[in-house]
Every structure is written in C-alpha cells, then in structure tokens.
C-alpha cells in the first residue's frame, strides 16, 4: 500500500520555484534512495514533507496514508509518523538530550491519545537503543547536540528515529561526516528499523551508503524533478558516470 504519494508538487521559496512538479510514490516496507546534484531540491522536498515554514506549495499534493499531509500541522505530521533526520541537526543549549527525547516522545504519544511513558520504562528504552547505537549515556546528559561531533549528531538523529518508531523515515544525508565505523553503526541502526509497515527515504550523494542500506528503488533528482527511477543498480551507474546524462532540460 502507498504510504507516501507526492503528486506533481510545485514549491516556491521566496518567489523562486525550486520544485517544478515532482512525483514520487513510496510504499509501505520499501526503502527509496534519492540522489542528485547539489541544489537539485532534495532537502527542500524533505522539508516540505515535514512541514517546515517558509515553503509555498503552489501546485500538487502530498498524501500520507491516504490523508492530505499539507493540511496537517508539522507536529501533527510527526505524531502521525513522519520523521526527518536532518542534514544539519541543530544545537539546543541548556536542554538535556534525555529531557528533550522524553518531552518529544510524550508529546507525540499524547497527540495520538496514548499514555505517557513512565520514567523507568522510558529510561529502559533509551538505554537499549543508545547502547545499540554505541551512544554513551553521558552524551544524553548534555544539551541537545551541543558540542557533539558531526558523527555524534547523526547518531543522535538515528537514536530519535529508533525511539519514536515513525512509519516514514526521511534521512537527509545521514552519511555526511561519518567515518566508516560510525557509518556502519548508524546504517545497522537504520536497517534494524526496516519493517513491512515502515518506509524509508534515504537522501545521499554516495553509493557507499547504499551498500549498507540497500534500497528497493533509486530516484535521480535534477532541478526540482525526479528524472529517473530504477533499482539499486542505478546508484552504481550514477557512481560511474555522474549526473550529466540525467540533467533535465
């Protein structure tokens, strides 16, 4: 069943059109990779799906589980299972990571009409997940992403993903800034979350990540459109010959 349907999406930022009619369908259980040159609109797409302000959708629609996603407030989208691992995770000084995780998780649960986690249950869950991602407990006491290395920030994104158990995970360049070992740990974390009900959209510049997170479908984006889609071999092709052959007219 289709989890995410983006239909002929046109998006403007400050009077300039960035996405010029983008179409993309992601089914439950699938992993899609989006590749494409700098500035082609990959992050823009992920921001629009997550509901970041500042983007004007002038045409097209986005359905999530059959519902009109663009009608929902961004926090509602989060509670319904849309998760975006940011390309550039921000720092929040003075807010302990542990406190942040708990506040966010409980806000989502509350929005869904579920009970809040009790403290021991929550701690147990965090401990489990952070251990599997090789995140030391000490790090969770620090301000959100404050003083984290690039790799630690990315692992913190995967940690949240594992904790919130979203149904759609969009990973915007989670491989940038990760060393080989960190990449493997993060990718293992992501793979552990693959499930028949959950879909992932992995945005990356490098085929290498796709060796770890093997996609079902690969899309090539150029100048605000999906210009080609194919199987995982498409990524290898791109690696060999670059984007020029796919440049949209």
């Amino acid at each position: 069943m289709a989890l995410l349907e983006v239909k002929d999406l046109k998006v403007r930022v400050e009077e300039r059109e960035i996405l010029h009619g983008l179409t993309l369908t992601v089914n439950e259980g699938e992993v899609h990779a989006i590749m494409g040159p700098n500035g082609s609109g990959k992050s823009t797409l992920s921001h629009v799906i997550a509901g970041k302000p500042g983007y004007e959708v002038t045409d097209g629609q986005i359905l999530f589980k059959g519902e009109d996603l663009l009608e929902m407030a961004p926090e509602e989208r989060a509670a319904k299972g849309v998760f975006l691992a940011f390309q550039y995770p921000v720092e929040i000084p003075g807010v302990a990571t542990m406190n942040f995780l708990r506040t966010a998780l409980n806000a989502q649960r509350k929005a869904r009409g579920e009970d809040e986690y009790s403290t021991p249950d929550f701690l147990k869950k965090v401990r489990e997940v952070s251990k599997s991602l090789n995140i030391p407990q000490d790090m969770l006491k620090r301000g959100v992403n404050v003083g984290f290395s690039g790799g630690e920030k990315k692992r913190n994104e995967v940690l949240q993903m594992a904790l919130f158990e979203p149904s759609l995970c969009i990973l915007d360049e989670m491989d940038s800034g990760l060393d080989i070992d960190a990449l493997r740990i993060a990718a293992d974390g992501v793979n552990a979350l693959r499930s028949p009900k959950r879909a992932m959209v992995v945005i990356t510049h490098y085929q290498r990540l796709l060796n770890y997170i093997v996609p079902d479908v690969v899309h090539v984006m150029s100048k605000g459109r999906v210009v080609k889609s194919g199987g995982k071999e498409l990524a290898l092709e791109l690696e060999a010959s670059g984007y020029t052959q796919f440049e949209a007219a």
Partner: peptide
Amino acid sequence: EDVLFYCIQRGLSQEEAVGLVVNG
C-alpha cells in the same frame, strides 16, 4: 526558526518548542 522547527518536527507544538528553548 531552525531550532524551533527541529523541536516541532519531533512532535512539540510551536508553544512547547518556544518554552523548551527558552527554558534551556
């Protein structure tokens, strides 16, 4: 705005996000 949106993407309302950031 980026910090607020980060919090909101994680499920906080705008007001909760402001409260959290200010408390930090």
